[in-house]
Design a protein around this nucleic acid. Structure first.
Length: 457
DNA sequence: ATCGGCTCGCGCAA
DNA sequence: TGCGCGAAGCCGAT
């Protein structure tokens, strides 16, 4: 960008509206996806612009009451993080403004006297619509900064990847180019702010209770939101879990995962920071490789999917053609078990492993990754049509998982129906789509220990 | 316990 | 145009 010296990789920047710079009173960073201070390329770029223009920086965050499928559980987790981020920004002398209302309208109001607006990047439909509407309404320069992936999605691949194997080499070859540390520049305008708007510190529970429409799903005790919690979990994972990650992470009876996905979902920790921390350890190469496979390859395959497939949440577009065909051919197959939404939601099926997985999600806000595959495959087997199963999987996932409504969730649901996978031996109901059964759980794990652990929650 | 086959489409080499 | 190869699993043969 002419005139703005930046340390941010150009592939992370998208300039919607170029200068000439409009006269204005401040630079606005519209914080939406990357709800953190540390390793936030968008915030760092906003500080660079603010320093260059000699204008103060304002960070604006808009709380909408009706984010699709979000409920009290998600809002409380998110606001626990926002409270920390607000306090961290305050210590840096950066103004933070929280607004409640319609996203586009409030961002537009916040940007009225802005000389420049910076935003982070989100990949879901609603996030892209918000940004497009804001960009159309603005009269000042508008720059988006891609900070919640390691490799920017368009730089990784120019089209939808058919499977992990096509994206993996692209990501791994480029990963090193995008792992520079993100150093927040010294904010030069802090003393020139006439008076820092003194916002009361946020009480996540009270604020969520006041704002949120959908209160029927209660917050969880097992995960609390915030960049500080995220960093603690990362440190603990590195010291206790990483060395055996490649051995234990797939076993639902073990505690072998990093449990960082809720924090990544709300942008409370940066994937770049995580990868740097992991690479800096002395853990066995196989452990690091297995973690990078999840953290970078699988996660950014999901970003690639929702970015390039506009129907990522719709059966007809999310599920590959060969799979739709084979599933349709088996639509009349007898189904030994058919469950209703209520039976599934309550974890009330004949299958104790499935019920345990459902209860893990309901109670803790996070189901073990391996069980997510099994859980989805079984819903497909136990409902009348794959379309209905796909809807139920997404609805339950989005309602109960703290990392619901994430690219990973939409991709995981589509994977159950063959996306990013290949055909297998044809069988009833599933056709050529990959099958999973309880025998596999028993063969691989002491799965009863998982059931017992969930029962004690 | 371990191994190959299952089955289709992608992507590279000719 | 042809062909090698994947891939977060299952199943049957050894």
């Amino acid at each position: 960008m002419p005139g703005i010296h930046t340390a941010i990789h150009k592939d992370r920047l998208r300039h919607w509206i170029a200068p000439p710079i409009k006269p204005g009173k401040y630079v606005l960073y519209w914080m939406q996806q990357a709800q953190r201070v540390a390793y936030n390329h968008a915030l760092a770029h906003a500080v660079e612009i603010s320093n260059t223009l000699c204008l103060p920086l304002v960070v604006g965050f808009v709380l909408t009451s009706d984010f699709p499928d979000a409920n009290l559980r998600h809002y409380v987790f998110m606001l626990e993080g926002i409270a920390q981020t607000q306090s961290q920004l305050g210590k840096l002398g950066i103004s933070f403004v929280l607004k409640v209302g319609d996203m586009v309208e409030e961002v537009f109001k916040l940007s009225r006297d802005a000389a420049w607006v910076v935003a982070d990047v989100g990949y879901l439909r609603i996030q892209r619509q918000w940004r497009a509407q804001v960009a159309n309404a603005l009269k000042c320069p508008y720059t988006e900064v891609e900070t919640d992936v390691t490799v920017p999605v368009a730089a990784a691949a120019a089209k939808e990847a058919s499977a992990a194997r096509t994206l993996r080499p692209l990501l791994m070859n480029k990963l090193g180019d995008y792992l520079d540390p993100v150093v927040l520049p010294e904010y030069r305008m802090r003393q020139t702010i006439p008076k820092t708007p003194h916002l009361d510190s946020i009480d996540p529970i009270k604020l969520a209770d006041r704002v949120v429409t959908n209160k029927n799903i209660s917050p969880v005790n097992y995960y609390h939101g915030g960049p500080a919690e995220a960093r603690q979990r990362l440190k603990k994972f590195i010291s206790q879990g990483l060395a055996a990650y490649h051995v234990l992470s797939r076993d639902p009876t073990k505690h072998g995962q990093s449990d960082l996905s809720p924090y990544l979902h709300f942008g409370q920790i940066s994937p770049v920071e995580i990868v740097r921390e992991i690479q800096a350890t002395e853990a066995p190469p196989a452990a690091k490789k297995a973690f990078i496979e999840q953290m970078v390859v699988r996660r950014e395959l999901a970003v690639n999917f929702v970015y390039y497939n506009p129907g990522y949440d719709m059966y007809e577009q999310a599920v590959p053609h060969w799979a739709q065909k084979t599933l349709a051919e088996h639509i009349q197959d007898p189904r030994p078990y058919i469950y209703t939404w209520d039976q599934l939601e309550q974890g009330n099926t004949h299958d104790p492993y499935w019920n345990a997985a459902q209860m893990e999600m309901v109670k803790t806000g996070k189901m073990h990754n391996y069980m997510r595959m099994y859980w989805g495959k079984k819903i497909m087997e136990w409902t009348r049509t794959p379309q209905e199963a796909h809807e139920i999987i997404l609805a339950l996932n989005n309602r109960y998982e703290l990392d619901g409504r994430d690219p990973n969730g939409f991709t995981g649901a589509a994977w159950c129906f063959g996306r990013h996978d290949r055909p297998w031996q044809e069988r009833a109901i599933f056709g050529k789509v990959r099958y999973m059964n309880a025998e596999g759980l028993k063969r691989k794990f002491r799965i009863n220990e998982y059931v017992q652990r969930i029962q004690t929650l």
